[in-house]
Computed example of a mutant assay.
Amino acid sequence: MQLDTIKSPGGSGSEELVPSRYAVRVGDIEVLVVSDGVLPLPTQMLGHNADPAVRSAWLKEMFLPQKAFDWALNAVLVRSGDKTILIDAGLGSDPDLHLPRAGQLINRLQATGIDLTSVTDVVLTHMHMDHVGGLLVEGVKDRLRPDLQIHVAAAEVKFWEAPDFSHTAMPPGFPDALRAAAKQFTKVYHNHLRQFDEEHEVAPGVVVRRTGGHTPGHSVVRVASGGEALTFAGDAVFAVGFEQPDWYNGFEHDPEEAARVRIRLLRELAGTGEMLVATHLPFPSVGHVAVDGDHFRWVPVFWDY
């Protein structure tokens, strides 16, 4: 598989009017950002601890709707040496949540010409359903390799044995859906789990590191080769997190720690100048972090054709 020569989606009604994948090369490592679709959510989820008037002003400045807007859902495929690594697996399908524009990852990988049997490893930033759900789509496990390794922080697996939602601010139905997805995922894939404590090298130049915050086992993945680097931040960074890094996201199980993690990570990335990709930044979400006074600024890359 060469990510720069994969075929374009087409035929069988799979043609799209907007792009859903973006290829980046990090030294000798190939990275493909794939859109899993979008998730419509209330805007208060971006900062439920913020003054509503301040939040409303920020949304207006960003030309975003006041009540609800579409959160991007991004996953990443990495090729390093003889390993093909899927970082997060998208939402999958939950008919009770009525989210028809999300859960597109498996179809888009197939349309791109990527066979699931080529995936040697999966890395999970955490076990929220929009990161594990794609693996629970009917028939997917049968198409995966029997020796597939799924890398996840041990603290994350432990947390979902009895998850605490007391500090979250989610729409109705989401806590139950998250619990159910995590429970099903652990049951279906327990023999494939490769748990780590703080840091683990999945393949040459591909290192997953636990940050905590968003969930106790939330992790980020750094890809480095040839003096270049890219960090997939999972849910540590949201669109509002650059200008308002201390705003609490409704899905954060420990919002105070999540804010500390976010600020620390953004400072690191601003210092190194390496690329950033995150689950819920607008596709393809590839950019850099700049310091802007007491806050940060996201600088999207110019698309490379």
Rank of each mutant, 00 (worst) to 15 (best):
Q2Y: 07
L3E: 02
D4K: 09
T5V: 05
I6K: 03
S14H: 10
L17A: 13
A23Y: 15
G27C: 10
D28Q: 11
E30Y: 02
V31W: 06
L32D: 04
V34I: 15
D36H: 12
G37I: 10
G37Y: 08
L39G: 01
P40Q: 06
L41D: 03
P42F: 06
T43Y: 05
Q44K: 10
G47D: 02
H48L: 07
A50C: 09
V54W: 01
L59K: 08
K60E: 15
M62L: 07
P65H: 11
Q66S: 15
W71G: 01
W71Y: 14
L73H: 02
L73I: 15
A75L: 06
R79Y: 08
I85T: 08
L86P: 03
A89V: 06
L91I: 09
D94F: 14
D94N: 14
D94Q: 12
P95V: 08
L97S: 13
L99M: 15
L99Y: 13
R101H: 12
I106S: 01
N107P: 00
R108Y: 08
A111D: 15
T112V: 03
L116T: 08
L116M: 11
L116G: 07
S118P: 00
V119M: 04
V119I: 15
T120Q: 08
V122P: 01
L124I: 08
D130C: 12
H131W: 03
H131I: 04
V132Q: 10
V132A: 11
G134S: 13
L135T: 07
L144H: 06
R145F: 05
R145T: 05
P146A: 13
L148Q: 09
Q149T: 10
I150V: 14
A153E: 01
A153H: 01
A154G: 07
E156P: 06
V157W: 01
V157R: 07
K158C: 01
F159G: 03
E161S: 14
F165V: 06
S166R: 12
H167I: 00
P172R: 13
G173F: 08
P175T: 07
P175L: 09
D176H: 08
A180I: 00
A181T: 13
A181N: 09
K183Q: 15
K183I: 04
F185C: 10
T186F: 00
E198A: 08
E199Q: 15
E201C: 05
A203Y: 11
A203P: 10
G205P: 09
V208E: 02
R210C: 07
G212C: 05
H214N: 13
T215I: 10
P216K: 07
V221Q: 02
V221Y: 01
V221N: 02
V223A: 08
V223P: 00
A224E: 15
L230M: 14
T231F: 06
A233R: 04
A236C: 15
A239M: 14
V240Y: 04
D246C: 05
W247V: 11
W247I: 09
F251M: 12
H253P: 00
D254V: 04
A259H: 03
A259K: 06
V261Y: 04
R264Q: 12
L266Q: 02
R267C: 08
G273L: 02
G273S: 01
E274Q: 13
V277G: 04
V277E: 02
T279D: 07
T279Y: 03
H280N: 13
P284G: 12
V291F: 02
H295P: 00
R297Y: 02
V299G: 00
V299H: 03
V301Q: 12
W303I: 10
